[in-house]
Design a protein around this nucleic acid. Structure first.
Lengths: 227, 227
DNA sequence: GAATGTGAAAATATTCACAGCG
DNA sequence: CGCTGTGAATATTTTCACATTC
């Protein structure tokens, strides 16, 4: 039996995306290598952390070559290996459900295409939206969802509908055989086993920030009192 | 000397927002109490975890009363205590910089007001947007930013501008004395010490999801191979 | 010298399990 | 009973520190 292949740690996984975004511009400007210290400083992460993370990448991607002592990591190689681990080495097609502001913001951002994700189709339940063009895509009725996902083997559904509709749409996505859902609705959705969900929840983020501010305040008060 | 008051753990902090959202509808329907098991099941968290988290809330908020054995937690009391810990017990005023799709999505969502956050003003550097009304607010020029933040003691800046403008605006927010920034730009921003930042990064989220899907695939393959 | 790669140590976070309360 | 509160045990993640390589 192989010695229990441990899964990639979640915090590591999150940082890999950040590394990717730092590395890419460097490749564009032709920088050949990058040290763990340099990369870490850009992101406020310790160099040891970067090396541990990249060690996971090398292991998981079965890359032939890793970093070089005294030199650093090869930017191009690292980019490829990280993208392979992330699963962004081949394009993943997505559908967007909900043609409201969030949906349009995503389309406008566009950085996705560069990262290997492409939006295949847009759906909206409102007949007012249907048939409208957003960018190069036409908004389709929900009735077309299942077929589009099946025939294009769409992996990811982006759920950008109001809370009240979210669970219903999530269920439809699951039934159509989606593999993962990026959920912008401010609620937990339940899905078929085997379907992954990532939540982007602006209320939670705002409250997190508020809490950080409160904590900061308390530290300030404490240190003033102590000093 | 007090026995080193440990800071609230970050994962706990994130879950508190989720607890809040589950509790609020229950209060509205008049449910008096909630057990850690019930709350945990709604969110896929163990009951022990919920109790540990709520123990932090009780400690940090210096609440007089906590849960009751055999009964559960008082919904109303818990709501108040959590909001106090989060710093949402009194309204925090925010400004929105960037009147694009993300900004409008935030305004349209509106759930913030209910949670104790209110958007005081909107700014945009484009003269095309300036003077336009979005909801009840008028888009103001960047030149007004500093004064509005100072005079209204605005705590939070929501940064919804393109990547290229993000660092510049962040710096302006810091100089105006902002306490925290909710950053939607797909990059790390650097800020004055003492200013908190929370990032909402859609690329990172999408890649996280992609990775989860890949991992799922591998498990499937492995277990098929093993079986 | 400058950097990687990595065990070992430390710090954090989660789960267990049970005494004790209502 | 059912449920909280919490130490103790476990698991996970980060940091340290150093032998090793270029």
């Amino acid at each position: 039996m192989p010695p229990t292949v441990r899964r990639i740690p979640r915090p590591t996984a999150q940082r890999l995306s950040l590394y990717l975004r730092e590395i890419q511009p460097l490749i564009a400007q032709g920088q050949p290598t990058l040290s763990s210290r340099e990369l870490g400083e850009k992101l406020g992460v310790s160099s040891a952390q970067v090396r541990k993370d990249l060690a996971w990448v090398v292991q998981s991607s079965q890359a032939t070559e890793a970093g070089r002592s005294g030199v650093g990591y090869n930017c191009v190689k690292m980019n490829e290996s990280i993208r392979q681990v992330i699963g962004a080495h081949r394009r993943r097609s997505t559908v967007l459900v909900g043609a409201g502001n969030i949906g349009r913001a995503l389309l406008a951002y566009g950085g996705f295409a560069q990262e290997g994700f492409s939006i295949t189709a847009i759906f909206d339940s409102s007949s007012r939206m249907q048939g409208k063009r957003i960018g190069t895509l036409m908004v389709q009725p929900m009735s077309a969802l299942r077929k589009v996902i099946r025939t294009n083997r769409v992996a990811i559904g982006i759920l950008a509908v109001p809370r009240s509709a979210a669970q219903n749409v999530a269920t439809q996505l699951c039934e159509a055989g989606i593999r993962g859902i990026l959920n912008f609705a401010p609620m937990r959705i339940s899905v078929t086993p085997g379907v992954s969900v990532t939540n982007i929840d602006m209320s939670v983020a705002l409250e997190q920030l508020s809490m950080d501010i409160s904590i900061h305040d308390q530290l300030r008060i404490n240190s003033e009192g102590a000093a």
